[in-house]
Design a protein around this nucleic acid. Structure first.
Lengths: 144, 144
DNA sequence: GATAAATAAGATGCTTTTTGTCTTATATCC
DNA sequence: GGATATAAGACAAAAAGCATCTTATTTATC
């Protein structure tokens, strides 16, 4: 019941990009270095974020990463789910076969509620907000 | 970000016990059979539940499992955490070293909130309530 | 006390997921 | 065409999850 390391890296990546000047292309290596993400692993993560429409990957010698949309339109939920898939908490909710009688199952209902709350809380946290409030892996040369 | 199978089994086990007459000793095999839990695996799970003070394990020829406290005093949270350990959602919260500046970290705060909500929701769901409302792995011979 | 019926406890093994790395290919700028 | 990026697929080590096997221990009953 934990966020995977890949998920955490994804969050760090977007956190970094969101703190950069808007629209700037940032080298993958720079992100990896500053946010303490294994360089090659970040490639995989970035690709997932690109598929989800969160970042844009620019190839070539001046290539790198760029937010595909404004930081205020990217939530923690977006990033986490882009990496780890949709959050479900328990199988009962995601796999109909594992629960014989879903809508009337009391246990099921509790998990469903918990899931909704979790997704809502993560969904309300935008990266614009997160950057503004400050975080613990702040860029070293950040002088906002 | 999912409940493990062991956690699910733990919930099923308590669900079954909570539906039995109060104070009754139920054979492990009966629980395993009715709730579709691998028999030996249930032993391990029951032991964890016993350590947590949720069930009492009675040895010997008339042995089995029994709730150690009233079903209304056992929550989904109790059972899940007895099996999988305390819920944290992300490492940032549980491992101080992974987050340099916890209290002022915006990301950290969101996860903390999400964690609190999740634990509260699961904590409010008692097994007395869950049994009363009905669930999807109802005992076959249940005629309440 | 012996026997039967239960659980305990430790070792072991298989599978899946996670977390990467290595290598080769491809794209872009100059 | 060379330099500098990322892409993509294969591969592999480590950890977690999910059990099972075996041997021991406990308790009720005869």
């Amino acid at each position: 019941m934990r966020l995977t390391r890949a998920g955490e890296y994804g969050v760090r990546c977007i956190l970094y990009l969101a703190a950069c000047p808007r629209g700037a292309v940032v080298k993958k290596k720079e992100v990896a270095l500053n946010m303490e993400i294994p360089d090659q692993f970040l490639s995989k993560i970035a690709q997932q974020l690109a598929v989800a429409g969160i970042v844009e990957i620019i190839q070539g010698s001046k290539g790198g990463l760029r937010l595909a949309r404004d930081a205020k339109d990217v939530s923690l939920l977006d990033v986490v789910e882009a990496i780890t898939g949709e959050i479900f908490l328990n199988d009962c909710v995601s796999d109909p076969n594992s629960c014989r009688n879903q809508p009337t199952c009391s246990v099921h209902r509790v998990w469903s509620k918990a899931r909704m709350q979790l997704r809502e809380t993560l969904g309300l946290a935008t990266f614009a907000g997160l950057v503004e409030e400050g975080h613990c892996l702040q860029k070293k040369d950040d002088r906002a």
